[in-house]
Amino acid sequence: MILRTPGGWSVRVRTRALAVGALCLLAALVFAVVAIGSGDYPMSPAAVVRTLAGYGSAADAFIVEQVRLPRVLTALLTGAALGLSGALFQSLVRNPLGSPDLLGFTQGAAAGALVTVVAGGGSVALMGGAVAGGVATGVLIYALSWRQGVHGYRLVLIGIGVAAILTGVNGYLLTRADIPDATRAVLWLTGSLNGRGWNDVVPLLVAVTVTVPPVVLGGGRGLRMLEMGDETAYALGVRVERLRLMLLAAAVLLASFAAGAAGPVSFVALTAPQLARRLTADPGPNLVASLCMGAALLTGADLAGQRIIPGHQLPVGVLTGVLGGGYLLWLLATQRRRGRI
């Protein structure tokens, strides 16, 4: 659908992609409200919404603002960051397996975080360590992949190599930690949202607000062209290397901040773009739909993790693997249309 204004402006609206994005966002918000209402001190969804709007009782307000809202916001933002990051990587390397948790960026963030855990740092240090580790890995992989421009396959192979090395490093770091630190680190490595506070939310919120608008508005259309190969994109007037560097940097930052906040949650960055693409039926990078899908997946997984076994909380990372992977397998099995991957 095309929207035109008398001034000669026109915007192309992909109705179906927009609808998918809106539905995912709605689902994410519903999960969020239910999640805020559940726990040892249950609240009805109406009470949650009332409290969020600022009209709740003092007790409700305390529980929501101090305990449950930060966790739910962390889930929403982490999911959104991972969904977008995955969509960027998959599009840039033209490979559905191109996701930060397979290409080493997440392992890099984990290594940075583990170093701070071994050194006995708190949650702020952990976030900083994760971001530093992720960014350093990003620079390393980019530099190693550079050969008159960066090419998808090379980046994937180098990323997988770096991921393998870092997995080893991370295992070694765990053996160097004291038992309590190691326990904490292992829980973090599964991906967990337990006990997240405002100091986890704020850096993540800043990272997402700063990266998302330029990526979606400034990079989305160029990225669409890049999917036809570097030469075609170049011929169409895309500044290929500049765009790729900018988008890779954004994707690495998003993945690193997400890992810093919730640990290296597996599979969201891999499945969210695939799910989004299958629902929108749009060949483009599906950035917005993937972002919303990621948020819905992670909030849904966290909610399920709190509810599935009464009295016991499963870390969100356990659920994202099972839910996201299962849904993707189901989609692939039921969607027989014309032998598409």
Binding site: R12, R94, R221, E227, P283
Partner: peptide, 28 residues
């Protein structure tokens, strides 16, 4: 050149208009 997965003919041909378009002039 690489045809993105699942792209239609009309969509692919339309991509040739990229250098004539802007963020706020996407489809004249």
């Amino acid at each position: 050149p690489i045809a993105p997965d699942g792209i239609t003919v009309a969509d692919l041909v339309a991509r040739g208009r990229y250098p004539h378009q802007r963020l706020l002039r996407q489809w004249s």
